[in-house]
């Protein structure tokens, strides 16, 4: 069923210097995307802020200091103090560690699970694919926040449990993406050629399909991390957050919710803006990577 394909479709670009390396080209494209580079800068700033910051800016985040609660920003406490007297700037670093770690781990976990599931479904095809994708449809039909709320009402997980739960509610979207990619790749001519000469399925998947999905997977991971960090912010609001005195940005934000009505703006704006900035940054990076690699991903 070949269609008659002929030369001379491309507009004349006589003597185009060929690109030497796809990766180098992608890097150049990414670096030209100002929003993406800004996003990269923001992420790097927050990583330094949360992980190196506490080494420079020492604060006590374990003991309450009831004689200095809800202080407004001053020279001693740049961002004021919270309802139990913790220094807010120090707490922002301290909570950011948890938010970033959980978000990163959950995002990666979701992508790994989604990739394996989607690649298996797409490559197998037929009824296996149909069943696997109906399961994904069912998962997508249940809003993640509903599951998190139920879980939070019944149990209090630790950090690893939290990562696991968040990963397990967010692998569905990447699995659909990777399935679509696998469907395309398994019918590429080089895969057909390999199968025609007797190459194994394992070889087709490991040597061709997965390596060619790498860009898609990287882009999906970036977006997944953004979503996971956002989801972490909801977790405390739903009552599933980490236990005090440990905290995360979402915990700080929901703790400050009532305080906001009393005019203690410094308790909600810093964590709120930190969440927005970091999630925005990962989205911008994902957007830039997607354009740079020229792969599909969410609009």
């Amino acid at each position: 069923m070949s269609t008659v394909i002929q030369p001379a479709k491309t507009p004349g670009t006589a003597g185009t210097p060929r690109e030497t390396s796809g990766t180098r080209l992608a890097v150049r494209r990414f670096l030209r995307n100002r929003l993406a580079v800004a996003g990269l800068g923001v992420v790097m700033f927050f990583v330094l802020f949360c992980f190196v910051g506490p080494l420079v800016y020492h604060t006590d985040q374990t003991h309450t200091a009831l004689q200095q609660v809800n202080l407004s920003p001053s020279g001693a406490h740049w961002l004021g103090t919270d309802a139990v007297g913790h220094d807010e700037l120090g707490r922002l670093m301290y909570g950011g560690k948890v938010s970033l770690t959980v978000g990163l781990a959950a995002g990666v976990l979701a992508t790994v699970v989604g990739t394996l599931w989607g690649a298996a479904a797409g490559y197998a095809g037929g009824w296996i694919d149909a069943v696997m994708m109906r399961i994904v449809d069912a998962g997508i039909a249940i809003p993640a926040l509903f599951i998190l709320l139920v879980v939070s009402a019944i149990t209090t997980p630790g950090l690893p449990g939290l990562i696991l739960i968040l990963g397990l509610v967010s692998w569905l979207v990447p699995s659909r993406l990777i399935r679509a990619e696998t469907l395309t790749l398994k019918n590429r001519d080089y895969v057909l050629t390999l199968r025609a000469i007797g190459g194994t399925h394992a070889r087709a998947i490991l040597r061709h399909i997965l390596p060619n999905s790498v860009s898609t997977i990287i882009v999906a991971t970036t977006f997944q991390i953004a979503d996971a960090i956002l989801l972490v912010a909801y977790v405390s609001y739903l009552g599933l957050g980490v236990q005090p005195p440990t905290t995360d940005w979402g915990g700080m934000l929901s703790a400050g919710l009532t305080a906001a009505y009393s005019g203690y703006w410094w308790l909600i704006l810093p964590p709120g803006l930190a969440i927005i900035l970091v999630v925005w940054a990962f989205n911008a990076i994902g957007d830039g990577l997607r354009d740079a690699f020229d792969v599909r991903g969410r609009g």
Partner: peptide, 19 residues
């Protein structure tokens, strides 16, 4: 048996794995 076959397909771009 299939080791006795060689294959060349139409599309020069899609025939080789770019990676």
């Amino acid at each position: 048996l299939r080791s006795g076959i060689g294959v060349v397909l139409q599309d020069p771009v899609a025939s080789l794995d770019a990676r």
